[in-house]
Amino acid sequence: MGSNPRPANAGSALLDDMSAADAAARVRDALEGVFDAVGATGADIESLLSAVLTEGRRPVSGDLAALRPGLHARLAGYDLVSGIGFVAAPGLLDDVPAWLEWWQKTADAAVQPLLLDLDPQRSAYSDYTHWDWFTLPRDTGQRAVAGPYVDYLCSDEYSLTLSAPVTVGGRFMGVAAADVYLRRFEAVVMPLLQRLPGPARLVNARGRVAASTDPRHLVGSLTKDHDLAAVLAGPAQGTDQDGLRLLPCDGVPLVLAAETPQVAPNRAWFTPGGRRGTRPPSP
């Protein structure tokens, strides 16, 4: 971690250089991969529920066992995904008031189901319908990225949860979702951020830092004073504000905030010896 001191022999300039736009695109690609897993899960659920409804009966929790081979395969196949499954809308299933068909990777790479006590008489955590990963897809009809947040319901991990609504015949059935632990996310995006010329961080739509190469703005802290919603809705090339380049990660609701060197262009940081300065303008 830390700002990005690079070894002088970090490879050719081509490999070494990365524009903020390239980094944002690579972050988007990583999360799009997770959304692929969410989408495949959602498609499985939709065809399963459609088939049950065609039989003229209400689905039961046991029907969801048919999702398991797909869920297990995606846990094994997607490095970033640590938990995946379907969260039923309350009242959807005939035999239980609420249900999560949720599977997680264990430390030794096995898979195990998440077993929650969803009885409101015994658990204060039985109602899951207020979590962002449930309300955002339900209320907007769009896929969503929730977090970073401490997931004390499923994993006790600092996480991102990517989710998408599941509908059959226009009716909301629940959400398909996948958990990405922040430490795994960091392992993927840090090498990208470290190839930028200055300190950079990824922030969510509310300004919460999801990954950072800037020790002054660590994961979990807030980046305030910027209209991030406008950046996300704005042009792909982003905007410059207060020495920060703010770039939307096109299609996923994260903003790459990269400090812009005050001496532009970047070439000015080359020194005659071929070593390139990597320090940002002093704060």
């Binding site: 658990s123 204060a124 955590y125 401490v150 004390y152 006790d156 919460r208 994961v219 802290s221």
Partner: peptide, 28 residues
Amino acid sequence: GARSRVYGRFHVELAAAAQSARLTREEV
């Protein structure tokens, strides 16, 4: 019983609002 469960959840949520997985686990 319900009061105690919600009281406990408040403190867990407070730790989650601190963005700390360790403090949250400790509260649980």
